[in-house]
């Protein structure tokens, strides 16, 4: 049994697929801290542009839409995403035809679920994402999505805030999209980023917290319903929820 250790990037994944596709019983994973099965050989995979290009070329010849679907699966924020993508690729190579309609096949079902989760979260965040005005007039939006959706929501905000410089910061993955009304750049950030808010923003946040507190009806706490509408893991970026433990 071979265990291919990738570094989490798509290029490295396709390099691993080059060998892993025909390797039955193998595991492809970016994680470094898991129980190694007995008798397993660890293989560290280094991204190789030639191998990765060959794999992608072959997949594109089989199914034009497959690369996009696999890149969406690889954005999934769970440990099994490489295996889901690998099973999907194996099925594609076996059938030599598009497989997205084989809805009774478990690999296709898993792939569809992963894609739905990623695109669903991206769709939600185009509505959820909140911006704060910084002292220098740049809008700052921190968020921590379950899946890697920064690049997926970026086009929406580039159109929406075309004349406004902004920064969208994926806190957990430590990357941010920076826009200055001319160019957009995706950069890595430090572990902790603090932003000085403008006076207007500070005043507005206080106003918002006061409004939230005054509109609340203490005798009708619908905790479960509230958490169903806005999951607790998103509360840390909402000013009106700071100081709430429930």
């Amino acid at each position: 049994m071979n265990v291919y250790l990738t570094d989490g990037t798509p290029a490295c994944f396709y390099t691993a697929v080059f060998s892993a596709c025909t390797d039955k019983d193998c595991i492809v994973t970016p994680a470094r801290d898991f129980q190694i099965p007995l008798g397993a050989a660890l293989i560290e995979v280094v991204a190789d542009t030639e191998k990765s290009a060959r794999v992608q070329k072959k997949l594109r010849a089989i199914d034009g839409g497959a690369i996009r679907e696999i890149s969406l699966i690889l954005r999934r924020g769970c440990a099994e995403r490489e295996m889901t993508a690998l099973e999907y690729i194996r099925l594609l190579v076996e059938r030599k035809a598009p497989v997205r309609d084989m809805l009774s096949h478990p690999a296709v079902l898993e792939a569809r679920d992963a894609i739905k989760k990623v695109t669903g979260e991206a769709h939600n965040f185009t509505g959820f994402l909140r911006f704060m005005e910084g002292e220098n007039g740049v809008f700052y939006a921190p968020f921590s999505p379950d899946n890697d959706i920064l690049e997926l929501i970026l086009p929406h905000f580039l159109r929406r805030l075309a004349t406004q410089p902004f920064v969208i910061h994926d806190v957990a993955r430590r990357k941010a999209a920076l826009y200055n009304t001319r160019d957009c750049v995706i950069a890595d950030t430090d572990e902790r980023v603090s932003v000085a808010l403008s006076e207007y923003e500070q005043g507005f946040q206080n106003l918002w917290k006061e409004y939230y507190r005054s509109v609340n009806i203490a005798q009708r706490p619908h905790e479960k319903q509230m958490k169903g509408y806005m999951p607790v893991r998103y509360w840390k970026f909402m000013p009106e929820k700071q100081g709430d433990t429930k």
Binding site: M102, S104, P106, L109
Partner: peptide, 17 residues
């Protein structure tokens, strides 16, 4: 309709879908 082109569907397959 889409799935049955590739394989015959059983009761468990429908539940999975």
């Amino acid at each position: 309709i889409k799935a049955r082109k590739f394989a015959a569907l059983g009761f468990g397959d429908l539940a999975k879908m």
